[in-house]
Simulated assay, not measured.
Amino acid sequence: MASQKIIFFDIDGTLVDPIMWEKSRDILASIPESTRVAIKKLKKNGVMPVIATGRPKQAILPLAESLGISDLITSNGQEVVIGNKSVFQNFIQQEVINFIHKYSSQQGAQILYDTTVGLVSSMETVEEEAVRALMENEIPQQVMQVLVNTEQPIKQIFPMKAELSDIKIVKSGYSYYDLLPKEISKASGIAHFLQETGTPVDQTFAFGDEENDVEMFEFVGTAVAMGNATKVLKEKANWVTKEVWNEGIYHACEKLRLI
């Protein structure tokens, strides 16, 4: 396996067309057909596709199954799955979660906690089946990351506090932010993955579009930014492909002679 090439794919804005997603809210229908064809050709050529996402594992299993991918880095590197088996999990210290939960409640912030038993919400009512509302006086346990959806400046909700000194805030979308340990990223998840599989870094590629892909881009052998990626990420990339909705993944895989 040491000589096998591996590609780490972000989901939102990379595997998934954000325009189609906004219209349909169907994540499987938002994967361009050209991307599905590219994934099949990669596997046929002996290239391993791996999902590397900020999303929790349970939230992406249908997408992974749809693409025939069983290797995952989820929760921004807090969990690593190889062959459908979890080989690594990391949690935010409980005292930090206690502070975040209490402080965010005082600020009126509505947040999600990514836990080993799924997503739990600070909201009293939730619309999504995959999310459970916290019971009164319940404090989330075994949290891998905290997800915040807000159009306010994130620092208004979580200003620098001593209790958060070991936590970083990463922008993962237009109004989405992820809170996780400073030493954790998609890159640290990839490092665990490569250690488990015995793969050298120079055999790795990464595709992404947002700022939570920066560390991943700095770590892998070849970094490919989608045409719809942020300026920050494009500056970190070795190569910029077309937009996700313009056959960006297929185009890049073809140009890089991976398919």
Score class of each variant (00 low, 15 high):
residue 1 M to R: 02
residue 7 I to V: 05
residue 7 I to S: 08
residue 8 F to R: 12
residue 8 F to P: 10
residue 12 D to S: 14
residue 19 I to E: 14
residue 31 I to R: 08
residue 33 E to Q: 11
residue 38 A to N: 01
residue 40 K to W: 02
residue 41 K to Q: 07
residue 46 G to V: 01
residue 47 V to P: 06
residue 57 K to L: 12
residue 58 Q to Y: 04
residue 58 Q to V: 07
residue 59 A to D: 15
residue 59 A to F: 11
residue 60 I to R: 13
residue 62 P to Q: 11
residue 63 L to N: 01
residue 63 L to P: 02
residue 64 A to I: 10
residue 72 L to N: 09
residue 75 S to M: 06
residue 80 V to E: 03
residue 80 V to T: 05
residue 82 I to F: 07
residue 82 I to G: 02
residue 85 K to V: 04
residue 86 S to I: 14
residue 87 V to F: 02
residue 98 N to A: 14
residue 98 N to I: 15
residue 99 F to Y: 14
residue 102 K to I: 00
residue 106 Q to D: 05
residue 110 Q to I: 14
residue 116 T to V: 14
residue 120 V to H: 10
residue 121 S to F: 08
residue 123 M to K: 15
residue 124 E to Y: 06
residue 124 E to H: 06
residue 127 E to I: 15
residue 130 A to Q: 05
residue 136 E to V: 09
residue 137 N to L: 04
residue 138 E to V: 12
residue 143 V to T: 03
residue 144 M to I: 08
residue 146 V to L: 12
residue 149 N to L: 10
residue 149 N to W: 15
residue 150 T to P: 09
residue 151 E to D: 08
residue 152 Q to N: 04
residue 158 F to Q: 01
residue 158 F to D: 05
residue 159 P to I: 14
residue 159 P to N: 07
residue 161 K to H: 02
residue 162 A to S: 09
residue 162 A to N: 03
residue 163 E to K: 00
residue 163 E to P: 05
residue 168 K to W: 13
residue 168 K to G: 06
residue 179 L to Q: 03
residue 180 L to V: 09
residue 191 A to P: 00
residue 193 F to K: 00
residue 198 G to I: 12
residue 201 V to H: 11
residue 201 V to S: 03
residue 214 V to A: 03
residue 214 V to C: 10
residue 216 M to V: 13
residue 220 V to M: 09
residue 225 A to H: 02
residue 230 T to D: 11
residue 241 T to W: 04
residue 241 T to R: 12
residue 245 W to C: 04
residue 246 N to H: 12
residue 249 I to W: 06
residue 257 R to K: 14
residue 258 L to A: 12
residue 259 I to C: 12
